[in-house]
Amino acid sequence: MTDHAFSAAERRAVYRTIAERRDMRRFMPGTTVAEDVLTRLLQAAHAAPSVGLMQPWRFIRITDAGLRTAMHDLVDEERKRTAEALGTRGDEFLELKVEGILECAELLVVALRDDRQRHVFGRRTMPQMDLASVSCAIQNMWLAARAEGLGMGWVSIFEPARLAELLGMPDGAEPVAILCLGPVPEFPDRPALEIDDWTQGRPLAEFVAENSWTATSSEDLADR
């Protein structure tokens, strides 16, 4: 513990927000998000760290109903192609609810901005750090939304070039996420894909190693 640590109550709130964040697909139709709350969420996203302070993100708020429907159609087309690519699990995949585009209160698209190649700091050998930075912005918004009592879902089932064309993005810009945001009926205690028996999360011990790629045993991790 250092002099810069938050209070115990504040720390508990931070860790609770992280633990209770969920990728939401089910929203309450006909609801809204207050403008001041939406502003706070966007400010949280914009406060994210970015490599070389490049701030490579752009946020597009979708308020046109026709555009929302067109985006849903794009996602639905890719949903069917994904099912085909999954082979024997295709029918099982089609039974999953993977987005809430038509039901959510707010719909946002997060994109990588154009002209990113001029940012060399931190990207000379790892150009994908622009995507990593945008992901940090999305996570900030996700956690802030949970703290506000709102659900958010990250939709990545779409063809980027077609969504970019639909939204009039310039050359070099690239959509990363469709974000569904709004009030939800509940926050489940487990990830939706676990509840739907699609997959199961794995324990931390499988992902932590020391000094080399060799995995550290759960017993070793528990002893630390």
Rank of each mutant, 00 (worst) to 15 (best):
F187M: 03
R61M: 11
L108M: 10
E78H: 06
Y15M: 15
P175A: 02
A9S: 15
R25T: 09
R190W: 07
I157D: 00
F59A: 08
Q139P: 04
T88H: 06
I18N: 03
V37R: 04
G100K: 00
G66T: 08
W198N: 08
I62H: 02
A44S: 14
D130Q: 09
A9I: 11
A209Q: 13
W57Q: 06
S135F: 07
A85W: 07
L143M: 08
F6V: 14
L131H: 13
D91H: 06
V120P: 09
L193Y: 15
Q43M: 13
L163E: 01
G66I: 03
D196H: 08
G151H: 03
C180D: 05
L41A: 02
V51E: 07
P185Y: 03
E10I: 06
P188G: 00
L131S: 11
F121E: 14
V33F: 06
M28W: 06
Q128G: 12
D115F: 10
E219F: 05
A147S: 14
E186V: 07
E148F: 02
D64P: 05
D171W: 01
T88E: 14
L102Q: 13
M129W: 10
A47Y: 05
E10D: 15
E165G: 12
D115R: 13
F158R: 01
V155Q: 00
V176F: 05
L86S: 08
T31G: 08
W154Y: 04
L150A: 03
L181W: 02
C136Q: 08
A47D: 13
P191N: 11
E10T: 15
S218T: 11
L181R: 04
A192T: 01
R21T: 01
R12C: 10
L41M: 08
L94Y: 10
D189H: 07
T82E: 09
E186M: 09
E10P: 02
M1R: 14
G52I: 08
D130C: 10
D76C: 11
M28A: 15
W198C: 03
V110W: 00
G168M: 11
R21G: 02
G201A: 11
A215W: 00
R11G: 07
S135L: 01
M141E: 02
D114P: 10
R224W: 14
T88V: 10
R40H: 09
D220E: 15
M129T: 10
D73L: 14
T39A: 14
R202G: 04
A85H: 10
D196M: 10
P49Y: 11
F121K: 12
D114V: 05
D91F: 04
V33R: 03
F27P: 00
T82M: 12
R124S: 14
P127G: 07
M129R: 15
D36E: 14
A137I: 06
E99L: 02
A205H: 15
L41Q: 06
E194V: 06
Y15A: 06
A34F: 05
D73P: 01
Q200H: 11
E10L: 10
T39S: 12
S50T: 13
P127A: 05
L163K: 00
F59N: 04
M141T: 05
A132K: 01
Q55G: 03
Q128L: 13
L150S: 04
R89C: 09
D36G: 05
